[in-house]
Design a protein around this nucleic acid. Structure first.
Lengths: 343, 343
DNA sequence: CCGTGCTTTTGAATCGTTTCATTAGCACGT
DNA sequence: ACGTGCTAATGAAACGATTCAAAAGCACGG
């Protein structure tokens, strides 16, 4: 039974060198002669020595860890953002540890506290509610913070986010370019700013195009079921009142709409009706008619967030930057051009 | 500009007490008089003191953190397992930090190393490949480890996992109880043990039931697309060769099969064909015909994993336990009883 | 005034590493 | 033999918290 954890001192004794030498083998191998290096390495292996990060950090005053607090790991957006952040951090010799707040402000606070006590190099936070004061306090104590998927209205810290107005614009312009003119927007009642932004973008695209009209349909929720309800009411309309292009505020709604219009009325997508969603969830590639969608540049966001953070870690005086990405269109069959059955 | 991080010494000076007293305020408030406690607290607030976990840990020799290494945070199973583990850990005064190996053995190894250097209390690992030797080494150095979603063949450490044979059995028995007799199993060629186990369970249920027959259909992959291919070949069969119950090795396959049989042949689910999947992914509740599925007791697994780990942390001599859960059936319309159109 | 039995406070020692000024060792030219 | 200029190795100090034996403070009875 192992009695006591193996320390650098034990290694030094076994190898017959001073502790400083062992430390040098670990951190500055070039300063140590090859022979000694080997002897020390042998002792390390024999004893199963593992560096104590607490002591190392205490002395160094800094760790090589980045804390990432996300709203919901189950959300593929955050999952793949985390993946990208980890990759980028690894390339820079750091490690990302993940905390899942689960949309709970209390848990979020706990993770922020834990990470601060652990003296992480910095934090990436996708905040639940208003973390303004909290972030302000962190910054005052010199902790670098970058907001993810949210901008700081007061520009106190850097952030990466996505322009949902641009996303809505892209989506509807795509419908217009495919020859559609009677466009419907399906979303909830501005619960989220995001929905309102997407609608604003949609309006903008419509206004730029003579003869295009936009109709707004309000769903109960952002779910497949709510989408199916909307789809059913659309499917029951007379031929003249049918839209020829539908933009849904997220993919779940779009999938619901698709299920309803295909099955109830037997409408054809995209011939009778072009359909576009938002978020590009995994499933959208696998629907009966593969769904065109708008997606955030997730990997890019993750990498950029880490880069902004490292920038600030290296030069605390660095200017705060709000990086706002444009989302990108993912074209699939649901909006295929050239098959519009002009009615 | 803050010059130097605030230490317990600074707090002591400001409050006019000794460092030991400040430490006592933080860790054993009852030992300190109310007046002093208040004075110290005021100093802490004024200076914005945050405990240095590295120093604390160095002295204490142990942290209050549990490391969780998962195969893929984007997988909802792990996401919700992590959530449950966090809850359970929080109730016991610990915090879970998450590392995503992304099915990459190298990243997995990195996280295990980092967590060991951080001297976490213990680790929960859902291993990529064979972590036998690695885990063995960890254990030798006294690091408690619990495997998740995998058993250690050599029983060296505790584990929580799911009995996929039982899952396959439950699924097919459910079909049989709904009056189906010509059952088809859709899966891949034993890529994963899991698929083989589910098939074994299916066979077992069939054997217990006179007059029931099982047909095995081999898909190219565990995807919606592969399921659609299988569904198409089924849909093209003559009436007599049609199965009346299909068990798919996962929900994606089942969804593909559903798309194909509904659209191509216009078969009715569940009247003509009962369909059951596996995993109970979010989407299965939202398919055109809501899909019956088999799910792992995710939350229970997360909590149990943490409990086993804590058990071992508290009493390193505790017996290793392999906890194997039975999966549970989630009934939805795709297997609804009493609507079988007997052919 | 002093001893006794409390509670409260003190501060040095400790954890395991890194750092860095110092010493040791060695080769070479004079 | 001795200084010079290297490289390699040494070991004490420092990081910031916790712990704990010891000291201080206090109330009270004799």
């Amino acid at each position: 039974m192992s009695s006591r954890p193996v320390s650098i001192k034990d290694v030094a004794d076994t190898a017959g060198v001073a502790v400083g030498t062992v430390s040098n083998v670990l951190n500055h191998p070039s300063r140590v002669s090859a022979a000694t290096r080997e002897r020390v390495q042998a002792a390390i292996d024999a004893l199963g020595f593992v560096r104590n990060d607490a002591a190392r950090q205490l002395r160094a005053g800094q760790s090589r860890t980045i804390g990432l607090v996300v709203l919901d790991v189950a959300n593929p957006f955050f999952a793949s953002l985390a993946r990208a952040a980890e990759d980028c951090a690894a390339e820079n010799g750091s490690t990302v540890v993940l905390g899942d707040s689960g949309q709970d402000a209390e848990r979020e606070a706990r993770y922020i506290d834990v990470f601060e006590q652990q003296r992480v190099q910095g934090m990436l936070i996708s905040p639940v509610g208003d973390v303004g004061p909290r972030v302000e306090a962190l910054r005052q104590r010199g902790m670098p913070v970058v907001l993810v998927d949210r901008v700081d209205p007061q520009r106190r810290c850097s952030s990466v986010s996505v322009d949902d107005v641009a996303g809505g614009y892209i989506a509807v312009r795509h419908l217009l370019e495919a020859g559609r003119r009677r466009i419907a927007f399906v979303g909830t009642r501005a619960d989220y700013r995001q929905v309102a932004d997407r609608l604003a973008g949609a309006r903008q695209a419509i206004e730029e195009h003579d003869g295009a009209v936009l109709e707004v349909l309000e769903a109960d929720a952002m779910t497949v079921l709510a989408g199916r309800d909307i789809g059913e009411t659309i499917a029951r309309r007379g031929h003249r009142e049918l839209p020829d292009g539908i933009f849904c505020a997220n993919d779940l709604l779009a999938i619901g709409v698709m299920q309803a219009v295909l099955l109830i009325r037997g409408l054809r997508i995209p011939e009778d009706l072009a359909l576009i969603g938002y978020d590009d969830i995994d499933f959208s590639a696998s629907t009966v008619v593969p769904l065109t969608s708008v997606r955030k540049p997730t990997e890019l966001m993750g990498r950029t967030a880490v880069e902004l953070l490292l920038e600030e870690i290296e030069g605390p005086a660095a200017r705060r930057r709000q990086v706002i990405f444009d989302p990108e269109l993912v074209e699939r069959r649901s909006t295929q051009a050239g098959v519009h059955a002009v009615g």
